[in-house]
Design a protein around this nucleic acid. Structure first.
Lengths: 185, 185
DNA sequence: GTCTATATTCGGATAGAC
DNA sequence: GTCTATCCGAATATAGAC
């Protein structure tokens, strides 16, 4: 793997773990085994490198989630597949985490991958809800967009509850609660 | 207001806006109009001051929420009251935000107010669900604890979606979605 | 492309005068 | 209680040699 790739990958890791403010160029260089000159040769600075890392994380997350949501099964099964997907609950979402950082939200180049990821995800799930209703698999209920936002929010909020409790259980509770409600109608 | 109080209040503000890593002692002193000597006289350092600020934020948040949840109305109405409560959506939750910060989660004195707030909130909402079912106001469904976790997660996750989109609308969508599901059975 | 040297400001705190 | 002085390392780069 090239030095450039190692820098990006290290930044992905550190952004996930420590956030944008908490991630220093020096820490990235050490994690990547690269010198300063190397980093500043390939990237103009921390924001540039972080933007590359976030774009890559967003692309990876989307590709993996697309596989899940485009798979076989009823609308309910595919949404349940998303909610029940294997996750490292205590680490949380490497994209959703960035939404808390004011420096990320304030920089369009940093916020764009975050915004696009969630816009896509909410839209995709809303589409599945609409398909499921058209096919008679899902009962009528809230607007597809509202339901989709609730589903995604349960996951993102579930991470908050789990980290607050220092225990993954509240995440799983929230998912079970959401699934039961989706199933009821 | 005493200098000590101004320091705590300034820290509450800055923690909410910038997080723990993003909040420096100097920024707190300037916001509070206090000198360094003053701050280090009243508190042993940044962690000590942050702990005091978080305890106060947790107490305030809990008192305000208690008012809402203990009010009159059916179980559904009180939970809806919590979900629909007036909020500054783009600022997010000053307690939930802290769960993302590894330095907060790693320090028991800092994590305790966060953990306790959510433990109380989930428990209180679960209790309302149980009461509502006993009174025949709410249909059967998921475990009260699961439903409560989902409700709280929708709010915390709704903030993430809103900040990612730079628009409060996804928060409101998620709340509408959750309310519609709560209502259906 | 990568290395080392250098620069500036900030973060987080201690010491001691008033 | 508050102020000023001082300290040391980290954060975020730039410059120029190899």
């Amino acid at each position: 793997m090239s030095t450039q790739d190692r820098l990006i990958e290290s930044t992905q890791e550190l952004l996930w773990e420590r956030g944008y403010v908490g991630t220093s160029p020096k820490a990235i260089q050490q994690h990547a085994g690269a010198g300063q000159g190397s980093m500043y040769h390939h990237f103009t600075g921390k924001p540039d490198l972080a933007a590359a890392a976030l774009r890559r994380s967003a692309a990876q997350l989307r590709a993996a989630t697309e596989d899940l949501l485009d798979g076989p099964g009823t609308a309910y099964e595919r949404i349940a597949g998303y909610l029940l997907r294997q996750r490292d609950v205590m680490r949380g979402c490497r994209i959703g985490r960035m939404a808390q950082d004011p420096d990320v939200v304030a920089d369009p180049a940093l916020r764009a991958p975050v915004e696009e990821t969630f816009a896509w995800l909410r839209g995709r799930i809303a589409g599945i809800v609409a398909e499921g209703r058209a096919a008679g698999e899902l009962a009528d209920g809230p607007e597809p967009a509202d339901l989709a936002a609730a589903v995604v929010a349960v996951v993102q909020g579930g991470y908050v509850l789990a980290r607050a409790a220092d225990d993954p259980e509240p995440f799983h509770q929230a998912v079970r609660g959401a699934l039961a409600l989706l199933r009821t109608p």
